[in-house]
Design a protein around this nucleic acid. Structure first.
Ligand SMILES: [Zn+2]
Ligand SMILES: [Zn+2]
Ligand SMILES: [Zn+2]
Ligand SMILES: [Zn+2]
Lengths: 161, 161
DNA sequence: GCCTCAGCGTTATGAAATAACATAACCAGG
DNA sequence: CCTGGTTATGTTATTTCATAACGCTGAGGC
């Protein structure tokens, strides 16, 4: 991952079996409550994100889309990603051109990530934007969204303390 | 720019004439001090960034590269951008796939941007990452770089208070 | 001088995202 | 029902963004 250190694969195993089904069901419930539709392509892309061991590229999703090995057409996946982002079920990581399922409980939140340059994991955390937000307001800005991506080494990949 | 409000062009006019020459000369000096080479393509791309009224896309730079109208080849510009980023003369804005010249005085700094979704300006500011940094360290992460991009409306484009 | 290597020019290709338009499913009102 | 507005999908093609690979050149150390 750009830094030469060779740790095993991602420390963030994807969901399987029941856990996966539960996560999808939770999303479905949330959609019902807000009268949004978790249609087949949307559900499929959400599954793929949840199953994955780390951030997925759009074209990884496209390739993995069909259970029979048939890829999806790009718009299918990009539309599903738009939906999942809008509902807060997934986040785009700008600096990786990649997508992850949301790992936070609370519904609407501002996402931020700690990205390991060795093993590729991207851990979501709940940032405190107070200082930046205050600075922006002071300058007269009306902030709508904030992207924060910190890159470095995760505990597992960090050369021992 | 995604939000329907129609303000005039970017509020960040590019440099011209003397100011431009000064800025380039300053970069050249800094390179000399660190034994880095501000070669013609690097200088040219820096000029283009400084002249611009706002964030420039890589292919905008490619198109504008030749004084005679001849575009550059993509690698020429991407290499120059890599250099300028490395030296701190330019920054990439991930959420726009765009580049801006560095507007801050201090040499090595962590860049952050306030991006107006109406007029397209991207104002650089010096963020205080203390809280996020502390949180990351507490989690065992060794943070190397941080990307922060806040999107919203600038004072000029904000519906009057 | 000679070597080394960073930088460059060039061709080609790969990766990421969207435009545009036709079709199909959903749903509320009549 | 059915009909019209709305939302979502299927499909083709294209655009936009970025890098691989290779050979050449010229600056600077010895
Ligand atoms: Zn989240
Ligand atoms: Zn790691
Ligand atoms: Zn800067
Ligand atoms: Zn503005």
């Amino acid at each position: 991952m750009g830094v030469d250190c060779h740790h095993p694969e991602s420390a963030q195993p994807g969901l399987e079996g029941l856990a996966l089904a539960d996560a999808v069901a939770a999303a479905a419930n949330k959609c019902e409550r807000t009268r949004e539709r978790l249609t087949p392509p949307r559900r499929r892309v959400l599954e793929l994100l949840l199953e994955a061991d780390g951030p997925m590229k759009a074209y990884d999703l496209i390739a993995a889309y069909g259970q029979d090995g048939e890829p999806a057409k790009p718009p299918t996946v990009y539309r599903a990603l738009d939906f999942l982002e809008r509902l807060g079920f997934a986040h785009r990581i700008e600096s990786l051109n990649s997508y992850v399922p949301c790992r936070m409980e609370g519904s609407s939140h501002r996402a931020a990530f700690l990205i390991c340059e060795c093993c590729g994991t991207a851990e979501e955390f709940e940032p405190d934007f107070a200082p930046q937000f205050a600075a922006a307001e002071a300058a007269g800005y009306a902030v709508r969204t904030v992207t924060l991506e910190a890159r470095g080494l995760c505990p597992a990949c960090k050369p021992e303390a």
